[in-house]
Nucleic acid binder design. Sequence first.
DNA 1: CATGAATGAGTTTTCATTCAT
DNA 2: TATGAATGAAAACTCATTCAT
Lengths: 194, 194, 194, 194
Amino acid sequence: MTAASSLSTSDKRDAILAAAVELFAERGFYGTAVPDIATRAKVGAGTIYRYFPSKEALVNTLFQHHKQRLVEAVLGGLDLSWPARKVFSEFWRRTCTFARENPKIIQFLELQHHAPYLDEASRRIEHQLLGTATAFLEQGIAQQVFRDASPSLLTAIVWGAFRGIFQGGCDETLTLDDATIASSEQCVWEAIRR
Amino acid sequence: MTAASSLSTSDKRDAILAAAVELFAERGFYGTAVPDIATRAKVGAGTIYRYFPSKEALVNTLFQHHKQRLVEAVLGGLDLSWPARKVFSEFWRRTCTFARENPKIIQFLELQHHAPYLDEASRRIEHQLLGTATAFLEQGIAQQVFRDASPSLLTAIVWGAFRGIFQGGCDETLTLDDATIASSEQCVWEAIRR
Amino acid sequence: MTAASSLSTSDKRDAILAAAVELFAERGFYGTAVPDIATRAKVGAGTIYRYFPSKEALVNTLFQHHKQRLVEAVLGGLDLSWPARKVFSEFWRRTCTFARENPKIIQFLELQHHAPYLDEASRRIEHQLLGTATAFLEQGIAQQVFRDASPSLLTAIVWGAFRGIFQGGCDETLTLDDATIASSEQCVWEAIRR
Amino acid sequence: MTAASSLSTSDKRDAILAAAVELFAERGFYGTAVPDIATRAKVGAGTIYRYFPSKEALVNTLFQHHKQRLVEAVLGGLDLSWPARKVFSEFWRRTCTFARENPKIIQFLELQHHAPYLDEASRRIEHQLLGTATAFLEQGIAQQVFRDASPSLLTAIVWGAFRGIFQGGCDETLTLDDATIASSEQCVWEAIRR
DNA sequence: CATGAATGAGTTTTCATTCAT
DNA sequence: TATGAATGAAAACTCATTCAT
């Protein structure tokens, strides 16, 4: 067998992950059959079980991997000691850009929110972004940059607004272009600033 | 036989609806088996099919019923010719109150968003609240009460923020008390006002 | 309650029998649901079980009743000592007339042929007509009126031909008018006569 | 592993078809449960759905396959320009031989007559044998070989008689040996000849 | 290592039968 | 006596997972 006629091991695993994230995003976990993932990944159904012990393990692997990517894309190199306005602006721009470039992944991540099949590791990572956001907001509240409200409330508003906008993009009632991102940033900033 | 020892026909239907809305809210449509609904409703599995022709018909009945209740609770008696600030305030207070009193229902409604098993009637009613919101925002934008942004964007931010806050309430990272509602209203108003 | 507002006991039983024979003829035993019989008979589903202990008992009652009626209609007052030609002619005319006047009943009886749910009594009566026919044919063979073949074979041909013609009537590829009956009698007579 | 210890894919499909035709012949379509077919075919219940999309598709596949086999066995190489007596003789001998060698199949085919679950293709093929028979009889009537009766009537008598004889064979009131076949051919020929 | 046919437990749904009214 | 709502066992069918090749 020549190199061209087969995929390397890692490529197969990646094909499975890519197919699964799309299908889970489109139809949800219970709505997606393992053989359908295999078909879209162009591998045999049994092959999936060489890389993942179960459908649940697969969805958890995906969740942790992509949540991590999101965290890195949004927080990587962000310095919370920068001015709050700049931090927020960066955060918003990065989040929206990530969403624009990886809509299926955001859709996938949001759909799995609090799902019963997520394991401990997935649940832990789910709170990572939230934790950093809360820390940032607490600091800003103390410095009287942000409204004197619970950091959880401000986090809920900011992340909720992002999800609403992202969903608008998916529904095609909204276009996630630069102008919209800038405009939305302004709105959400006003929601939280003092 | 005493009145307490048996349920009337209508009570059984109601028990099925109540059990189903809870389970769908907790586990989603595909994650909920019909016999689970029957068990929680304390009826036989076959009984469900005396009231609803299929699991899909059941979820659509629930969706339409509760979405209608939400629309009425939020929009009933609301006069869009009132000052925008007052309309918004009423809308926000009513929405949050409904969510506080009917958390499972909000959770259920949000989970079914754009689900493939929703029928035409469900999809139509899904857009009713959105349509009124957009009309209200358009009017406010024209009157320079709201920011000069697309009404869809403002809708996405307001409804997204509400969902974020509601989810915080479910996660118990937030308490939906009157103070939080008032505080959040202020935040979201600032997000959209000019 | 006045006499006009309710059916007598016997009328209900008859309504059930009439509804059941039609449905069994149209859809077969397994294809007919008991509640459908109740609906067509305009009685409650439970009422059927006041007259018949089970669906199987109902079908056996029907089978025995109508098979008996058929036997009487075909053999009643027939004297096997008449000339064979006349006996056959009477038999054929009576059978075809019964079929023309009671198509559903013939259809029902033929559909249940050798069904696993028929009980001993039904199976016994199923052979009654056959037995008389065989006796008649044996006598005719001995008298060299009929072909020198096994009476079972002649019976099979005569009854098979009748069923074929009857089915043609149901399919509307044939009209069971007097001319057709006379013509068919001639054919079938030629098949068996010496 | 030896050849005997496993079945090829096609063997499994064949085992399902063979088990299904027997059970449908014995108990009818509605009286046969899919798991019963699986048990008799010695496959898992799910396996049936790898080869046939539904129970209805299975029965239609069987019907079309075996009806086609019957048509070929009876009509293959038959030349309607041969003398009518010879054509009839061949037809009768072939039909009876097929029935003797494939009793379950004849039983199966006759039981499905005009069943509501038969699809268009099945219904079309059902009329093929009938059509040829009618054409042959029409020609013979025109040539004054056959009785001056409607071809449908003669067809009904011939096919009905065959079914009666076949059923006698199943009931064991008749033996389908060569003598019986020859004798029956003579009888039925007399029924239709001028 | 890769496969995909095979499986059986689990799903949705039907229906003969019961029983409180 | 008559009812029809209620039931649960069993039907058709699906799909996560296994295993022989």
